[in-house]
Design a protein around this nucleic acid. Sequence first.
DNA 1: AGTAGTTTGGTACTTTAGTATGAGTACGCT
DNA 2: AGCGTACTCATACTAAAGTACCAAACTACT
Lengths: 139, 139
Amino acid sequence: MKRTVLIFAALIAALLSLFQLSKYSYISGDSSIEMIIAVIAVVFLLIGLYINKRRNQGKKDPESLGIDHEKIKQLGLSSREYEVLQEISNGLSNREIASKLFVSESTIKTHVSNLLIKLDAKRRTQAIQIAKKYRILPE
Amino acid sequence: MKRTVLIFAALIAALLSLFQLSKYSYISGDSSIEMIIAVIAVVFLLIGLYINKRRNQGKKDPESLGIDHEKIKQLGLSSREYEVLQEISNGLSNREIASKLFVSESTIKTHVSNLLIKLDAKRRTQAIQIAKKYRILPE
DNA sequence: AGTAGTTTGGTACTTTAGTATGAGTACGCT
DNA sequence: AGCGTACTCATACTAAAGTACCAAACTACT
């Protein structure tokens, strides 16, 4: 909501400065009012576009990146298990995960087994599907 | 692109009518120019907001629902292979896919092998990841 | 009718995944 | 100091996945 306040403040400031500009131009005479109006129109059009762009950027991210950390705790997944889960969904084998995390393949197998129990999955592919259903993995 | 043309036409029309309005107000005298400018600002701000809203409505749907059937053809995936791919991403085992499609497990293995070659994947988990990258599977 | 691709299925094999069990280390908490 | 939890790793095993090769039947195309 801070952003909205700032935007409104900027809008009011812009309006006031444009009033000043219009007065100055009015004193110095003649029919350049069209130009001023055109400039104002363009400026506020751009402001409108900018505001909406900002708003939509804010909308999209929470939907796509929203990972339910609560659910992770609820399922009792440890941080290491969660790391392994992420690598599984990246399509890595146990051996590849082991070398990436600098541990033995046995360790990864242990993590995977515990992972499958906690997610109530029979296979790693099913674990991926369930994890995405729970929104604990990005889609 | 038709939409863009229409919007620009509407914009120009609005500008011209506002010019007329400003001239009329100029003749009838005094310092109500501020009001006109304010109206113009608000109107164009709203126009900017409207344009961007329109644009973003068109953007969201094709991204989430779009499955690239062209890419499937391009990769040379047969319809049966694609069915198997879908079941893999649902977390099913070869045996489960076999009974779901009423064929033998050997057949599924053959399909999976061909699938992996065509997707350039080493494992079924990697195949899922690649398929989603290519947008041939829903996320 | 012949050619090409798809679907189906088999055998035999290698590799990877997953289970079960035990056990040592480390860290924080009370 | 003792307790629980997480992390590590090993062995031994079973199950599933994946490879290689072959082959029959069934489209569809021209």
